[in-house]
Structure formats: C-alpha cells, structure tokens
Amino acid sequence: MTRVEEQFICRYAYGRAAESVMMSERGQDFMAFAIDRDVCRFVLCDGVGLSYRGDVASQLLGRGLMGWLHSQDELSQPALERKLFELTQEAEREMRSLSVDAKAPKLLREVLEEKQRMGSEAMYVCGRIELPSRFRRKGRLWLAWQGDSRLRLWQGQHEISPIFGDRFRTAERWSSKSGPVGGKPHVYQCRLEHDSGYRLQMYSDGLNDLDPMKEPIPDDQVQVLMNALHTGGLEDDASFLEIMW
C-alpha cells in the first residue's frame, strides 16, 4: 500500500494472483494516476483472463487513456468512444507482433491462435478530477468505465455511489479487435458542490471483499486483503486506487 499526498491524497495497492506469482508471470491489471497541480487523472484496467494476453490489452488501453485524459480540454463520451476505436489500430499491430510458442502442444497452439484472432480484452475505469481554481469556480469530476471493476464515491461520511447507476457489467469491456464491446462506454460527470471531503475509490473485481465496506479502510487492512493469507494468496489480480480531496 503506497500513499501520495499533494492536493490530492492517493492510496494505491497492486497484487498479482497467486497463480501468476507462482509462475513468475506479470499481472493482468494496470493502474496509473497523475497529479498535475489541481488536476488528477487516473485509470484502472482489468485484463480479461480468458482473452488472449489480457495484460497486453490492459496496459495498452491504460496508457492510451492516460494520454487521452491529459490531451483533452473537454472530455466527452463520443470523444472517448473515438479514442477507444483508435486504440484498436495500435493494439492490432501489437497483437500481430506477438507469437504463440511453436513448441506448445498442437491443441494449445490452436486455442491460443484462435484467441489471438479474437483479440485481447480489458475492462476499465478512468477519469479526471479538476479542483476549483482561478478559472473554475467549482470543481469538476469526469468518469468513464466499461466492465465490472468497482467505482465508489463518498462525500463526507456518505457513500453516494448509487449516482453511477447499475451500469457495471461483466460483459462490457474494450477489445483490441473491435473497441468497445457490449455497449458504449458509460460516462458520469458533475460539478463538485464542495471543495473538499470527497473520497473516490476504485478496485478490480479481485478485491470484491471490499464491496460491503463503507468506512475508510486502514492501509494495513488493504494490505491484509492483498496478502490474502486466508486463501493462500490472491485468486485474481487485484488493484486498488483511492483518491481523496
């Protein structure tokens, strides 16, 4: 668990599935945030394990979205959708450069090649927080997502996550082959009524033990979940990002 304190306080943690640790493999989640004075942008991607190399999709998508969130003055759903399609071109080049191990058993090779043709997939949550400034009387929050990664918001002690609606669906994701899958990206945006007292939390479904927890979770408790000693390690990759301002 790591904490960064500037105008925003960010806590983040990342853990690989026990299976990946055992095999010395990289995780399939990708998480990033950047604080630029009064603006914080962030992304959390969960590579789809059943797709071909979910780590490739989550990393490529995550980097692409971070760049896009930085480059856009005004964020919008149509612009995001265009970006998600645009990213498929780069992703397809990347996918073509990957090869299936020729020494793998024939059945495995055939399945991997079939998966490669179907593309790599990732779910994502991303957004930008703009604090009030000389040019903005009120702060602004812009969020977008596809998939079942969790996104929760508190104002003071009150969780106000229902404002995002029941729009977190496992069947929705980004595909390196076809862009948004299962529907268009979901977007939530608002002016921030208060200058401070917000807590925005996001985590991949590997940390679903956090779902019932409404109170702020101490760092060491998050670490306990990451260590997952009760199950002999994490069953899935897990990433956690919390931004307070």
């Binding site: 095999m23 059943l50 190399r53 191990d101 059945l107 495995l108 399945v111």
Partner: peptide, 13 residues
C-alpha cells in the same frame, strides 16, 4: 476438451 483448454489458458500458458 478444447473448450476446457480455452478456459484454462492465461497468457500463453
């Protein structure tokens, strides 16, 4: 069996 292989691959493994 092929479906099980499909559902058992992670990365190239």
């Amino acid at each position: 069996i092929r479906q099980m292989v499909f559902r058992s691959t992670k990365g190239n493994r």
